[in-house]
Design a protein around this nucleic acid. Structure first.
Lengths: 139, 139
DNA sequence: CTTGACCTTCCAGTAGCTGGAAGGATTTAC
DNA sequence: GTAAATCCTTCCAGCTACTGGAAGGTCAAG
C-alpha cells in the first residue's frame, strides 16, 4: 500500500490535490493506517493518473467522475465515452470562437493605437464611447 | 443622482455586480442618500459602462482598475494603454494555442472511437495507458 | 394604509484547488 | 536512544468575479 506522498509522486499530482480528490469522493484511498494515514492501492493510483490525464484534456471534475465510472465498467458502450468527448470538443470550439473574436477586435484596436507619449487612444475611446462590444460568457 | 438600479439598467450590469464593484472600490458611488442608498453621478455611470466593455474584452478586474486610471488621466501616454492591450492579446493567443492543441488531440481520439455498444475505446485507453498528455495551465 | 418595487447588509456558494497553522507519526542520523 | 527532519493529519482561509438568498428598511402609487 502507498501513502499519499507516494501516489502523489507516482501520479504527478500535488499531495494537496490527491487529498482534495479523496475529500470530494473522486478517488478515495483504500484504507487508513492505524495512525490515520491514507493508504492507496495500485488501482487507485491508476485512477489518479487517469484523472490527471482527463483533467489535462480540460474535462471538469464532474466529467472525470463519469469517465472514471465508464473506465471501471467493463460493459460500457464506447458511445457514452465518445459523447462526453464530443461535448468537451464542442466546449473547446465555443471557447476558441470566443477568443478568436476577442483577438480580432482587440488586435484591431491595438493596431490603431500609436502607443507613444500622446494621450489619445482608440482603445480607451472604444471602451468609453462605442456601442458594440464582443459577446462573451468566458466560462 | 442615480440609484443603483438606475445605473444598473443604464450600464447593462446586474445590480449585484454594481454593488460588488463598489465593495471592491472599482467604481464607488459619489454619495449615499439619507436612508443609505448608493447615489451615482453620470461620471460614475460612464465608468461602469467603461468597465463593462473592458470586461467584455476579457480584461481582469485588476486590469480594469488600471485602465480606469488611465482613462481618467488626461496626460496618460497611450503607450501604457497599448501595453495592457498587448498583454491581454498575448494571453488570448496563449489560450488559443492551448485550446487548439486540446482540440487536435481530443478530436483525434474521438475520431478513432467507434462510439457504439462495444466497450473498447481509445479515449479511455489514452487516459489509462498513454504517457504524453497535453500541457495546460487553463487560467 | 397597504402593496409592491426598490434599497440595505450579511452570509454562503460556485471550481478546483492551494497555502498555512497546529499537531501527531515515522524515519533517519548520530 | 533520542533528536531532527520529514511525513502525515485536520481545519480554515483565500483565490476570481460574481450570484443567490434571507432579513429587514424605504419609497411611490393607489
Amino acid at each position: 500500500m502507498l501513502t499519499i506522498g507516494d501516489v502523489a509522486r507516482a501520479s504527478g499530482l500535488p499531495t494537496k490535490t490527491v487529498r482534495y480528490y479523496a475529500d470530494i469522493g473522486l478517488v478515495k484511498p483504500d484504507a487508513r493506517s492505524q495512525s490515520g494515514y491514507r493508504l492507496y492501492s495500485d488501482i487507485e493510483l491508476r485512477k489518479l493518473i487517469f484523472v490527471r490525464r482527463a483533467r489535462a484534456f480540460g474535462f471538469s471534475v464532474e466529467a472525470c467522475r463519469e469517465l472514471l465510472d465508464l473506465y471501471q465498467d467493463r460493459d460500457r458502450p464506447s458511445r457514452d465515452v465518445k459523447k462526453l468527448a464530443m461535448q468537451r470538443i464542442a466546449e473547446i470550439e465555443r471557447k476558441m470562437r470566443e477568443l478568436e473574436l476577442l483577438h480580432r477586435e482587440l488586435s484591431h484596436l491595438a493596431e490603431s493605437c500609436h502607443g507613444d507619449d500622446r494621450p489619445d487612444c482608440p482603445i480607451l475611446s472604444s471602451f468609453a464611447e462605442d456601442g458594440a462590444v464582443p459577446e462573451i460568457s468566458e466560462k
